[in-house]
Structure formats: structure tokens, C-alpha cells
Design a protein around this nucleic acid. Sequence first.
DNA 1: GAGTTTGAAACT
DNA 2: CAGTTTCAAACTC
Length: 828
Amino acid sequence: MDTPVKNQLATTSKFEDSPVFNYISNLSPIEPVKSIPTDHAFTSLTFASPSSVFPSPQIGIHKESRFSIRRHQFSDSSKNESSQIGNKNNTSEGVSVAVQPSDSCTENFECCTSASSAREITTEPTDGPSELVIELPNTLKYDCGSPDSDMVPPDAIKTDTVPRIAGTLESFDEFLMDDSKGKLHSFESEKNLRNICSIEQNIEACDWVSFVSGAADLLNLDSSMMEEHFEGQNHKSVDPGTISFLSTVLQLPQDNANDIEKTEAISIISCKQCEIGETVTQSRAIGNLKKTDQTSAILSSTLLDKLAVSDLSDKVDDKGKKCMDSSSKPGSHRLCSIRRRCLVFETSGAHKNKPICDSNSSSPAIPSDCEVFPNEKQAQINTASGYSSTMLPGIGLHLNALATAPTDNKVAKLESPAFRSKQIIMLNSMVSCNPLTPGQNPLDKSLTLKTLEGELAPHYNEAQVTENAPQTSTSAVSEEFDQSSPRRKRFKLEHVEESNACKRCNCKRSKCLKLYCECFAAGLYCVEPCSCQDCFNKPIHESTVLETRRNIESRNPLAFAPKVIRDADVVPEFGDESNKTPASARHKRGCNCKKSSCLKKYCECFQGGVGCSINCRCKGCKNAFGRKDGAEETDIEGEELEACKMNALDASLHTVKEDDKEHLEFPITVLSENSRSLSQELEGCKNALEISLQEVNESEKENPDLSITPSSEISRPSIRLPFSFSGKLPLSSLLSVGSSAQFCTSQKPRTKYSFSSRLKFETHLQMIPEDETPEALNSTSDVKSTSPNSKRVSPPKQEFGSTARRMGRKLILRSIPPFPSLSSTGEQ
DNA sequence: GAGTTTGAAACT
DNA sequence: CAGTTTCAAACTC
């Protein structure tokens, strides 16, 4: 990490001191502008840096520093270009344009890609696109500076970028549509989901969703521009190298997610090559020879830059507009570009109050079920877990996807003041919720997708129900989606529970500014569902929050770190011995239980779904996830746990509460009353399930160690049926099945939450076609009965992140073995 | 929903 | 670092 920066600094310094540089500077009538924005940038970054407040400050600093340095680089380059302009008239079209007053968008795109692109920025109504477009001009300037540069028109980039993104989004839409109507294509849906997830997961350090978002918006917004541009440009030849590069860049997150840093470093070097090539030699040969590589490198650098920073607000554009408007002096245009870039970076650290959706950075370590402390979004990238950008990329994708859904009123309110709260709530259910789950696995994106599915489910479901209305006896179905029906209420309630299962505090005296407050401890702002009093943990009191956070961290730097540490973030596989390994996942600090025997959620270890470790000072530890002394459950305890499981099963099968009956009966009603279409859907589900079960059996034969735990078994129908029955079942149930672990880890099915979850799972099973049900149930029963202990079940409040991970893993391992594992992609 | 229990966080 | 107090979640009734 440091090497490129140092090299860069050294190179820049050397470069500035070079005789050529001085010569060019003397020739240039334009004042060097580098220092102003650069210094400003550094200052701004220094001030804006959230590092001191948030858990992973170094990373944030580092990233921003790197960017600032890179901007510095750009400034240099710009200055050099300006100098070149003064000296040579034929060097750069872009510079010529830069000297022109540029107020309107009607200027010829041929004049300069940078100018045109910059103008695009000013005309872009949304943030996302400009995010991408901004970079392109900066990138292309370099080519502008090269004589004979057959510049890569931004359209070329767009045309290359957009289809890819569009494909992704199409896949996503396909997935959603499949989910809502298809069911027969569950595998395809999963495949699409996997594609999307794999893309998302591999974003890691760069904010891919920002890119996706931007590109997606480009697709919508720039079509006219593209036409115009192409008309004007006569289809200027597109540099194949650039396209190839763009492909590389776009594939980079997928293929070389872990090499982003390396790539960036290479890009930096390449940038320096570019600068030197342009400034020192002014050689066309070099320009021609290296053009592609340089462009690629710069694009790589720039795009990755921006992808990583990926924080563009309206303010930026506004300022950029002002800058553009006021840029009537020669070179000011260029300067504006530089300043815009500066502002982008400044904003990245400065717009703290920006709603989450505006920022595409992520908080992998801190599940942002509520509103994540803004700065953390940057600061927490690349946390100790090594993950980055797991949450909000997904969110960004969701929001983008939602934005494309005109029926989604949430999106319609995107800019409304009320949207913020809505957004928070939406995010609550969109992102993983477990504050105790550190190093949020990238697989959470699959969860995110699933949760989005849940979010969208009502809409899709409603639509679907409407469609199916003539065919089916919709009494039950309609009731499900009747806003006033109990089921609907329950669905809402569960959604609320789901979203608030994340964090919802009830603080009274701490003002939600102490670690007592779970929201605060999780790095989240309190939101509407919180019942706290005198809450200061709100964006309004951001300064207070940050100050308090700072104070707490000064006392304990790890105060806001994840409490549960999972080695390599690997969730113990079904049947493996991970839980016997004390290091697999342990509470950071350990518990201190005395009376709860680490068998209740008082115990943070238990709550986090991990076993106690030597760090714990608990007494009489009976943690079902693993005892402090490493001893496994005795046979008696195992029997108890087994009895617990059986009781839970019995209870779930026979003791049906009233409101749970609805869930239990509803699918059956659907099953019995549904018409041909649903039967077909069921058939498709059945086929998928058959395949899945066959694969399970095969894989079990091949690898008997992969015993199936209840949770994992649950996850299969859960993961599959949602695709098939999302229109009929509350998806929340799918995400809550993980809580079924509680049956086994406590003496009885204690909570309604877990109880209903189990019921819902059973409900799912009952929805399986008759000839499949025995197998599925047997499989489940076998699993339950053969599971020696309950440790491997989903932790009770492991919540959805882990559950989703397991689901995802399960889905991959069991259902579609041929496809690469989501988890393996993200965790490797 | 009120009251109790519990253990983490905060304080001394 | 240990002991005590405060606090809010978990739990019980």
C-alpha cells in the first residue's frame, strides 16, 4: 500500500523538479494550479477524515490519502497539459476546449471528450452517472494531451460499460421477475442471483455498486447524448484497447478482487508513465504506442479511484456547476475539473449527513441495519476482517434496482425528506443486522438480495396475486395481501421485527450515547423503531455522537469493534468440527456470566452464537456453542439438547398458536386451491428440489462429513422455496429460520420469535409437493436426529447475516454444486 | 406491560 | 485491576 504512494510522491516531486517541468512551467502562461486544490484537498481530507472516530481509521485515512495523492497527480498532469497548451496548439483538443467558455451543453462533443464529459457532469441530474462520467474526462484528458490521440470517446466507454452493467441489472431484474412469477426457473434465478452476488461480493475495495449505479443511470440518461455524440463523431473509432481495458476493469472486481490494490499501484505507475510520456517527450510515437496502455492504466486508476471513493453528492455537482459556469478563463475549465475532483474527495469525507443511499461506501463490519454513522462507511472499508464493501454496495444495488421499479413508492420518495427515515427502515431490512457479526461476509449480499426480495415481495406479490386472481381462489391469497388482514399485519410485524431484529434500543438514561445502547454500540443511529428517550444518537446530534464515540474509543479502541471474531469469517459448516476449535469464532472479550450458564442471551457469547473461550470468565459455562473449557456437551446435555430439538419440533407441529396457524394454513390453502399455474410452479419447484436433494445425497455420499444441521437443512427449502413461493409466503420467515437454533440451545422454545420461525419452516416443508415432502422431511428429520448437538445450528441471534451466509453456502454446496461458491468467492 | 434478572458498561 | 454502580436487554409473570 505504501509503496505506490511513496513512489508516486517521489516521482511527482522528481517530476516537478525536472528541468523539463520547469521549462514547460515557464512557457506556460497559466499559473500552476496544482498547489491550491492539492493543499486544499489535503487539508480537507485531514479535516474530513473520519479516522479518529471510527474503528478502522487507518484504512480510511490511507484510502483518502492515496486518493489525495492521486489527485495531486492529476493536478500535476493538468498543469502540465495546460503548459503544453500554451506551447503547442495542436496538442490537445481538450485543452483548446478548456480555454473556451463552456456554458452550454450543446458544444460539440468532438471538441473534447473532457469538455463534453464535463458538461455531461453538469447536466447529469443524478449523482451516480456523474460519478462515472467525471472520471472519464479526467482520464481522457491524458489522451487529449497526446497529439494524434484518437481519443476514446466517452461513448465508447459507455457503450462498453453500459451493456455489462445492463446485463447485470437485467439479470437482477430477471431474478426478481423469476422470483415473482417464474418459480419454474428457480435455478436460473439462483444463477442470476449468484452472478449478481459474485459481482457484488468481489467489489470489495472498490465501490462497485456506485459504478453499477452510475453506469445504469448512464444507460438511462445518456442515450440521447450517445446518439448525439455518435452523430457528431461519425462513430469515431473506439480504441479496442480501451474496450479491452474496460472489460478488464469491469471484470477486475470479479476476477481479481483481491488484487485491486496491486492494480491500483500499477495504475499509478502507469499514470506516471503517462505524465512523463506526455510532458517530457511529447512524443507521438510514445503516445500512440502507449496510448492504449496509458489510457487503460489511467482509466483503471481513475475508475478504481472513483470506485473506491465513490462518494459523490449533489453538492459536488452543484459546486462543479458553479465552477463550470464561472470558468471563463483559459485553463479554468481544467481547473474546474481538478476542483471538481477535489470536491469529490472533500465531499467524501465531508458530507457526513448524507443519507446512506447517497453514499455507496459500505460498512462491512458494522451491519447497518439502522443508519450507520456516516464516516464509518468509509472508515470501515477494509476492516480487520479484510472485507470491504459488503453492505451498501448491495444497498446501492437495491436502491438502484428499486429505482428502476416505478411502482416502488419508496424509490419515488428517494429525495423526499421522509425518504431518509424510510430509507433507514428499508435499509434495516436490506442489510444484515447482526451487530455481533463481525467482518460481514460478502455473502451478506446474497442476504441483501434476499431481503430485497422480501422488500419487493409485497409489491410483486400483490401484482402476482392480481394476475392470478382469475385463476385461483384468491380468498386466502388476497387476504394475505390485504392491508388490513391479520396476515398482512403479521407480515408487516415480522418485517418490522426483521428489520428491527437488527437493532432497536430502548435506552432511557444513556441518551443512546453509551455502549449500553445497542444502536450506538453497533455504530448505528437510532431510528424510528427505537424506543429510546432523550436520544442523542441521531444525525442531528452527529457531532455529539462522534465526540462520544471518540471518547469511548479513546478509552477502548476496540469498543466498537465487532464483539464476535470469526476466524476468516468462516461459519462452521454443517457437521464439521469447527466448533470444537476454540478459535473458529469467539467473543472478542469473552463473557462473564455467573448465573445464566452462558445459555441465555445474557451471555454475549451465546448471543453471538459462539462458544465461550479462554477469554471468558464465566462460571458454570454450558454454552451450547462451545464451552470455555473446550469440553463438549456431555451425553446428558446432548440428550437434553436433542430433547429440546424434538420438543421444538413437536411444538412446532402440534402446538400452533393462533396467529401462527395462519401461516401454517395459508400455504396449504394455496396449495390446495391453487390452479394450474401454481401447480406448474410447484412442479418446477419440485423438480428443483429433486435435483437439489439428489445432489445433497450425492454430496453426502461423497463427503459424509458434511452432515446436515437443522439450519442448513432449513436453508435449503428456505432458499429454494422463496423463489418458488415468494408470492405466497412472507419472506421474512425465510430469514428468520436461523433462529430455530434457539430451540436447541435453550431448554424450550422460549420465544415466539423462534417458535413462529420454526412453524414457518414447517410450513415451508408442508408446501412441498406430496411426493417430495417425505423425502424433504425425512431429510430434515434425519438431520435433526443425527445431529449430535445443537452447536452448529444458526445462533439464535446470529440473525440474518450468518443465516444468509449459511443459506448461501448451502445453496451453493447443495443445490447447485457446479457453480462456484458464493462464499468461496467472497471469503477467499 | 410491569417487574425481575442478568451481565456488560461505566465509574471509582 | 478490582469493586461498585449504572444501565438496558433478556427474561418472567
